[in-house]
Design a protein around this nucleic acid. Structure first.
Length: 351
DNA sequence: AGTATTTGACCGGC
DNA sequence: GCCGGTCAAATACT
């Protein structure tokens, strides 16, 4: 553990040093007559570097450091190690395993909270994020003082695999686009990205119910789905809710899983023109300095999913590696969050 | 028909 | 008694 910590500190220092170096380069560029692209590139590299450093501080820093803006306090069992920290692949899984192994009472199970911001779609309906596991709703309760009811979910495989993971989903009163998700217990099921296609998740079905006649038709009516940006949904709201950003460029989707841009892009680089389009679209001036939530168009989904499917099928694809060309890759191609500081125009990054 | 969701009832902690 | 959490019958969906 100590070695891991010192490694983190080294990485942190490295990131900061890199940021400084890049800033120096930028200064030189400003004095010289460098191209705007170069400057832009340097700026984004700098921001990316500091972003990473900040994330390291948040996630791996001192035990006293704020893990994230979770603090739905009663989770008394949540220690600095136990929380979700960043929503990344390694997300404290080991820690919950240790904790849940210690105590079997549900009340004492590891518990942590995520705040998940979601885009409100055109028809005003959205649900909390897919997290790579399949859940079954077993209850809903109006909570005193809360504007929205709280939903209770358990793992679909509670009985078949005795997976005792549960989660509570509470929509934020202040910001309805924010869902506070309290996870309880670790998944012992093997379906976090298994080859067995799980049933559709509750959030998805909720949306499906609401959108029953809307969403798919909307997607269809959006016309040129072969053109990536036409279906690109950008939300620059809720910029403060950055805690879910696992790394300066990762597709955060699951408490236990995310996909790096490398893996994701390598799967889509076959379609170079599509990627170029994607790349350019995110280089537009409007793209600067914001969080991005974008919904992958069906074309891109198909790249990952191999086949054309209905929206509900597409959404559930994140639970099933069967449909994914990337084995055991547990990621969602639902609306995902991109780090605003990611240097999309970094020529060497994607190659 | 099988599976998932809804929702009122019930239970336990405070 | 209140409230959060869970159960389970009814209902909806595929």
């Amino acid at each position: 553990m100590d070695s891991g910590k010192s490694w983190e500190q080294k990485s942190l220092v490295n990131e900061i040093i890199e940021g400084m170096e890049l800033a120096k380069q930028l200064r030189l560029c400003l004095n010289a007559k460098s191209s705007a692209d170069t400057k832009q590139f340097l700026v984004q590299r700098i921001l990316s570097s500091y972003e990473k450093a900040l994330l390291m501080l948040k996630c791996g820093g001192s035990p006293q450091s704020p893990i994230r803006a979770i603090a739905s306090a009663p989770e008394s069992l949540m220690s600095a190690n136990e929380g979700p920290c960043c929503v990344d692949n390694n997300r404290s899984l080991q820690d919950h395993q240790d904790l849940t192994a210690v105590s079997k009472k549900r009340k004492e199970m590891a518990k942590w909270t995520e705040h998940v911001t979601r885009v409100i779609s055109e028809n005003g309906i959205e649900g909390p994020h897919e997290d790579g596991h399949s859940w079954r709703k077993y209850g809903q309760k109006d909570i005193l003082g809360a504007k929205y009811p709280r939903s209770y979910y358990r793992c679909t495989y509670l009985f078949t695999q005795k997976c005792r993971a549960r989660k509570k989903v509470q929509r934020s009163d202040e910001d309805p686009t924010v869902f506070e998700i309290t996870y309880e217990g670790k998944h012992t099921c093997s379906h976090g990205g298994s080859s067995v296609p799980p049933p559709p998740s509750p959030e998805k079905q909720e949306r499906k119910r609401h959108n029953h006649n809307n969403t798919y038709q909307q997607q269809q009516s959006q016309g040129n789905q072969m053109s990536f940006p036409t279906n690109l949904r950008v939300n620059t709201e809720n910029l403060d809710d950055r805690e879910n950003t696992a790394s300066p460029f990762s597709f955060t989707s699951s408490p236990f899983g995310s996909i790096s841009v490398d893996a994701f892009l390598s799967s889509m680089l076959d379609d170079k023109s599509l990627f170029d389009h994607f790349n350019q679209s995110l280089l537009s001036p409007a793209a600067g300095g914001s969080n991005y939530y974008f919904e992958l168009p069906s074309q891109m989904r198909n790249i990952a999913g191999n086949e054309q499917r209905s929206e509900s099928d597409i959404i559930s694809a994140n639970n099933s590696s069967t449909n994914s060309p990337i084995p055991d890759m547990d990621f969602s191609l639902e609306p995902v969050e991109l780090d605003s500081y990611f240097p999309f125009d970094c020529p060497g990054f994607f190659l």
